[in-house]
Amino acid sequence: MTPENLLLRPLITQKCTLGCPDLDRCLGGGIPCNSITELVAESGCGKTQLCLQLALTAQLPIPLGGLSASSIYIHTEFPFPSRRLHQLSLAFHSSHPPIFGGDPCDYIFVQGVHSADQMLGIMTKMEQFVENSRTQLPVRLIVIDSIAALFRSEFDNTPVELKRRSSLFFKISGKLKSLAKRFGLAVVVTNQVVDLVGSEGINGLRIGNLASLCSSGRRVCPALGLAWANCVNSRLFLARHEEVDKEENELGDVNLQSTRSRRRLHVVFAPHLPESCCEFVITRKGIFGVEREQNAAKRNEA
C-alpha cells in the first residue's frame, strides 16, 4: 500500500457543470467527482429536472465544464420522464454546437429499479458496465432518482427492520463510493423530504448549516434519517416558496393575481463548500440560476 501524492492529483477535484454559471458558482464548479452528492427536495421542486440536465451536461467536453462522458440513470419512480428528457436534449442540442454526431439521449443509459435488493444486485452489473463500456464516451456519471422511493415503503417501523434498512444504506453507499473512486465518477442521488412536527428537529437533531429546512411554507427534513445522512458526502436542498404577485389595475381590483414559485438551491453540507444559496428558475430549456441584485450586493460586501 502506498499513499497517494496529493500533488499528483488535480488540485481542484473535477466537477460536472450544471449548465448554468450561477448555479456552478454556488457549488464551486458543479457536482464533484469521486463522491456522492445528494439532492433533497419535496416533489415538484426540480430534482428530476436537475438530474436530467446533469445527464446532458456531463456529455460536454471537459473545457466546457462537462466530463465528456455518458451517464447511467437509475429511476425508481415510474414512468421515466423520457418526453421531458427529449425536450431538454433538443434545447441542449441547439444551444451547444454539435460536438459529436447523434442524439444526446444515446449517451444516457436508463434503468428502472423497483426494490432496494434489486438496487444492490444492479450495483455489480453497473460495475461491469462501467468497466467494459464500449460506447464512444466512458460512463462518468451515475444518477439515482430517487433513493428514498426504494426505502420508504418496503420497511416496517420496527427496530429489526430499521436496522436492516440502515445496513442496506451503508452497503449501497459503500458500493457507490468505491465505484466513484475507482472510475472517477460523479454520483448524484435524490432524496425526498418528510414533514417536521414539533419545535425541535427529530430528537433535537440538526444536520448541516441550516437550522431548519423550509419548503412550501412547511418545515421539512430529508427522508431516511440520520443513518443515510452519514452515507453521502454532500447534501444540497432545493426549496420552493409560493409568492403571490398582486398587481392592482387602475380600478383597484386585484384581478391580476398570480402565484409565482421561487426556487432556491441551498448547500446543507459539503466538505468543500461553505453555506450558500442560489435562486433558480425552471424553464422549458432547463434549470437556470438567477443572479439576484441582493445576492450580488452580498457578494460585493464579502
Partner: peptide, 16 residues
Amino acid sequence: AIYIDTEGSFMVERVL
C-alpha cells in the same frame, strides 16, 4: 500527517 479516508470526503481544494 497520515490521512486515511474511508468516506471520500477529502477534497484537495479544501486542503489547499
